[in-house]
Design a binder for these strands. Structure first.
Lengths: 333, 333
DNA sequence: ATGAAAGCGCTAACAA
DNA sequence: TTGTTAGCGCTTTCAT
């Protein structure tokens, strides 16, 4: 193994100069820096991570806690994880993968052992049991999603309220007057994943503002439930021409159900969704995407700022972007 | 931060005794061990990972390199990653997540820096450019999948040859006499991902052995290609009653295509697949699963053995398990 | 069965 | 602008 003293000897300087030249933590003359860099390159020097962590009390590793729970869309998690790793690497950090299963002990373990400098948590619940721990851990963290009370913490997510609004505005702009939201399964609202409720708020507020008639229907994640909701919708709102779907599992079955009931999409009925882009694209449905890659990147940027001692906003809401596809059209005459 | 000297003081022993009591690396009297354990527990002692790594030249971290390439089934990767983390934790190790994108430099970086003790690589190609590096890295590694030449390396995967055989045997056992394999896109065979070719070998060998008429058709990963293959199959093998599909993207479209052509599954045609269990289950198709969780677990076990200095087999082939579902039935009379 | 002490390789405070 | 040096917290020889 090649160590800092080897580099120092070859460059004809002291070890500390090598350290400083490589880290840039104090001014070094251009000439020395170049000699050091050349020596390091020629020898293939890589600082020993453990030694560095011990001396600097920085491991340059971030923890990423991923959920396992059913009902989580796996490709989104993976895409997110990859974007976190990529962003972390740009800042010379690595990523330690933890499963939610390890729970609070896991978080305490990796921070107490100084294995990681900071944490990113996915799948945060309204009353997440990890909140008090995070506040007391003394390490920067960023949560994906919003708990009820985020005081003293840092959260980031798509602005789901605005996403709900954006979908309604799109439909209103196309002349639709009667709209419905097909939402998540009832238990999601009960369990308290904040984003589902925010979509409802945004949807309702935007519909009211635009003077649209509107209704909200939770829906189980099964094709059968989708068919039921489709029928119910048509009975309760015969003039319905616009639907917002926030439930990826039923998007396809729901469209099928509408077409079985004799409604063509988008000729008779416009459909827009809030869902992974992948799915919307494959079904050619107008949608607001869950920007998992951007969330991951931004989460890392936030952590880096916090590690640098900067103060960052407690909450970051990413603006929704709606992509028009073949499932929405002007209201039929 | 609570350190080993704190624990030592509280237990009334020397730091080295604490270290030994906790690691079990030398005999300690029951009484002392208990005092040390109690002290550690009461203080919430966690050894500093960096210090430990520096002193012992073991980081207790494994690297997991995940692929990004298109055509990789994401949920399988995620399931695999989770099983690796879970298995690693059982051995008191953590997992560092690397993307394939970082390439050989990434591998060299984390090993040279002593960030990780060992590596797990997914998505190994027949002539993977990382092979020479792995051989020279001086750290244990396990690859998921088989390169052309695995000398000096450790590989593990589903036994795809046996999987192909198993599917044919299942069909033969149901009385089918004419079978076809719908395989991966042509470029997969060209690019040289070994498993696709092994399925073909197993399929053909088993069909010959059982005296079945058989044919193999590569197939692009599009519904249109699936429809074409379905038609071609029926023209070329009018007596066809059994199909093996090794191409998850076209499984559903292919079944649809057969049914559009007037063939009921399983009444007229039996279909069996080699694909993620998730997909087979949702389509209710008889299948051999890709046992990603088991592969991950076994990969970790292999690494642990290697880290312990044991010699492990160069290749591990997991036996296929076929799960019967509603898509296969006895040959129609 | 236990203790003392020498590093592991690096960073950063202190000196010059 | 550079060098000297004292640790960082742990493991592990070497002694007892």
């Amino acid at each position: 193994m090649v160590k800092i003293t080897d580099v120092a000897r070859r460059a004809g300087v002291s070890p500390s100069t090598v350290s400083y030249a490589l880290s840039g933590k104090r001014p070094i003359s251009a000439a020395t820096r170049q000699r050091v860099e050349a020596a390091a390159r020629e020898l293939g020097y890589r600082p020993h991570a453990g030694a560095r962590a011990l001396a600097s009390s920085r491991s340059n590793v971030l923890a990423l806690v991923v959920p396992l729970r059913a009902g989580i869309h796996v490709p989104v998690v993976m895409q997110f994880a990859v974007s976190v790793v990529t962003a972390a690497r740009r800042h010379d950090h690595d990523v330690l993968l933890l499963t939610q299963e390890e729970g609070e002990d896991g978080l305490r373990r990796v921070t107490d052992a100084a294995l990681v400098d900071a944490l990113i948590l996915m799948d945060v619940q309204l009353h997440d049991p990890r909140l008090p721990l995070l506040r007391s851990l003394g390490r920067p963290s960023v949560m994906i999603g919003f708990p009820r009370d985020s005081t003293g913490l840092t959260c980031i997510d798509l602005d789901f309220r605005a996403a709900g609004e954006r979908c309604v505005e799109h439909l209103a702009g196309l002349g639709h007057r009667v709209v419905a939201l097909v939402g998540s399964p009832p238990e999601v609202y009960v369990r308290g994943t904040a984003f589902a409720q925010r979509v409802v708020q945004g949807f309702t507020a935007a519909a009211d503002r635009a003077g649209l008639a509107s209704a909200v229907h939770p829906c189980e994640a099964t094709p059968a439930a989708a068919r039921q909701v489709a029928e119910k919708l048509l009975h309760e709102q015969p003039a319905l021409t616009g639907v917002v779907v926030h439930n990826e599992a039923v998007l396809e079955p729901l469209i099928d159900a509408f077409e079985h009931l004799g409604l063509r999409v988008p000729d008779d009925l416009s459909v827009t969704a809030i869902c992974p882009d992948e799915l919307a694209e494959s079904l050619d449905v107008t949608s607001v995407a869950l920007p998992s890659a951007e969330v991951g990147e931004r989460a890392v940027e936030l952590l880096m700022s916090k590690l640098a001692g900067d103060v960052v906003p407690e909450t970051t809401l990413l603006p929704p972007e709606l992509t028009g596809r073949a499932s929405t059209a002007p209201r039929p005459a």
